[in-house]
Design a protein around this nucleic acid. Structure first.
Length: 488
DNA sequence: ATGTGC
């Protein structure tokens, strides 16, 4: 089979789970594991195999270096990567988190059905396009001074709620309550503050988007879970947001890649690739980055919260009803570019690990104490964004994910075509027309930016979702079909 | 991903 020829070292350990065994010659400390159907594995860039092997060589790594089926080549670590390190003897690495710190997904429900929304779709999308600024370098509508921005990065969603950008009950349906403890604004550079201070409430560019979607009855796979998450089907309208910490998180990552390059000499840390720059987690440099990274993570939660507030205002103005009466509750909000200290069981022993998820989502199962009370019996919702042309999925975490993948799963569909290749092949205006023929209203800042995000530049999200379901690390709840998209 | 690129 061609598969074994291209990736000689890859062995199937169970259905759709592949392992690159420890090779001392390569300096691997643990095996690498790739979750993929044979088809997805075949089509994965070879860079992924090399990168996940490099990650398996990093100090203090536990059990396996993991790559999810939506994995592709990234900065140092693959996007779709999960790696957990011993907090006392292991490292933290910005490359394992990503430049867009706490890039994540949020899903908001409504009581509206598509019949009610469709006639007003054009006006609604125009209103959303004004309320939620998109594009590179765009400023938000919110004016903050430095002291307010520092409070925002320390308190995340709590700052937003205290300042009128959200409802008290929003907190519970956001990972970590939208407020990570330990954020230390004194570790954030002036440059990062300057870049981030006027970007709260903005979408950004690239694959970041705001999408109006519908939930149909036939695409609900787990009715009990869907109802617990507030989804009833019947062409119900929901809103999905994909964005992160904008220029602020990018600058924090850039600043500390520089700091870590020096720290690696100081601590005599050697890595396979310069992009794997890291520092011992408990070192002053590691802790400074962690404190600054948490500021960026809180700012991303706050960004999605302010965007939620604007979405509620837009719907309220178009439908002439309060957001409360439209039932615009948050379904959930997940981070998919972050590192967190979490307790996990390794060889029967409970210990705190620094879990890096880069293009991977936390997926705790039913009964887990860190799943919010209203969803605890069901498990944590996992929000996976597809490409604009296909659908997105709402999944739920499992006990098997907790024991096998440090409570993690996929995050989206994953690119198969580079941005430049996509731009050569697809014209943005053609794509817009094609999507509008399918009944999807598009508001885009840039046509070339739109072309980069064409469905054909991505893996089929259904293949990826089916893979994680067969592996047992998540279960399908519902598929969400796009009817309107805003992008930078 | 990103005040898009040394």
């Amino acid at each position: 089979m061609k598969l074994q020829q291209t990736h000689m070292k890859v062995q199937e350990v169970s259905r759709d789970v592949w392992e690159i065994p420890v090779s001392e010659k390569d300096g691997m400390l643990v095996p690498a594991r790739i979750y993929a159907s044979p088809k997805i594995l075949e089509e994965m860039d070879s860079g992924v195999f090399e990168q996940v092997t490099n990650v398996a060589c990093l100090h203090g790594i536990q059990q396996y270096a993991i790559c999810m089926p939506d994995g592709h080549w990234g900065y140092g670590f693959p996007i779709g990567g999960v790696a957990a390190f011993d907090q006392h003897h292991g490292i933290i690495s910005p490359g394992g988190i990503g430049f867009d710190i706490n890039c994540g997904m949020r899903l908001i429900r409504t009581n509206l059905t598509y019949d009610e929304v469709q006639p007003k779709m054009e006006r609604l999308m125009t209103e959303l396009f004004h309320q939620v600024p998109a594009g590179v370098g765009t400023k938000g509508l919110l004016r903050l001074n430095e002291s307010e921005f520092k409070h925002l990065m320390r308190d995340g969603v709590d700052w937003c709620i205290a300042n009128g950008y959200g409802w008290p009950q929003d907190r519970e349906r956001i990972e970590e309550g939208g407020h990570l403890a330990g954020a230390d604004s004194s570790k954030v550079s002036e440059k990062a503050i300057k870049r981030g201070i006027h970007q709260v409430g903005t979408l950004g560019s690239g694959n970041h988007y705001l999408e109006v979607q519908i939930v149909t009855d036939e695409r609900i796979f787990d009715r009990r879970a869907a109802e617990t998450f507030g989804l009833f089907g019947e062409n119900q309208v929901v809103i999905m947001v994909h964005c992160g910490s904008r220029g602020f998180g990018h600058q924090v990552a850039t600043d500390f890649l520089g700091v870590f390059e020096k720290a690696m000499k100081k601590y005599d840390l050697r890595v396979k690739d310069r992009q794997l720059a890291c520092a011992p987690f408990k070192s002053p440099e590691g802790q400074d980055y962690f404190g600054a990274m948490l500021c960026a993570a809180n700012s991303a939660f706050a960004n999605r919260q302010v965007i939620t507030h604007r979405i509620r205002e837009a719907f309220s103005s178009i439908f002439q009803k309060s957001a409360e009466s439209l039932g615009m509750e948050i379904v959930y909000d997940v981070a998919h570019n972050i590192a967190k200290v979490e307790p996990h069981t390794i060889n029967g022993k409970r210990k705190d690990l620094v879990v890096h998820r880069k293009g991977a989502t936390r997926a705790f199962g039913p009964g887990h104490p860190d799943v919010c009370a209203p969803y605890r019996e069901i498990g944590q919702p996992v929000i996976c964004g597809g490409s604009m042309e296909t659908g997105s999925y709402l999944l739920v975490g499992t006990e098997k994910a907790v024991t096998e993948t440090f409570g993690s799963t996929m995050h989206g569909s994953g690119r198969t075509m580079s941005r430049t290749a996509a731009k050569k092949k697809i014209r943005g205006a053609d794509l817009k027309r094609r999507m509008e023929e399918k009944g999807i209203v598009i508001k885009a800042v840039s046509m070339s930016g739109l072309a980069e995000e064409a469905g054909m530049a991505y893996k089929d999200i259904s293949d990826v979702v089916e893979t994680v379901e067969r592996c047992g690390i998540t279960k399908k709840v519902a598929e969400l079909r796009p009817v309107g998209n805003i992008k930078g």
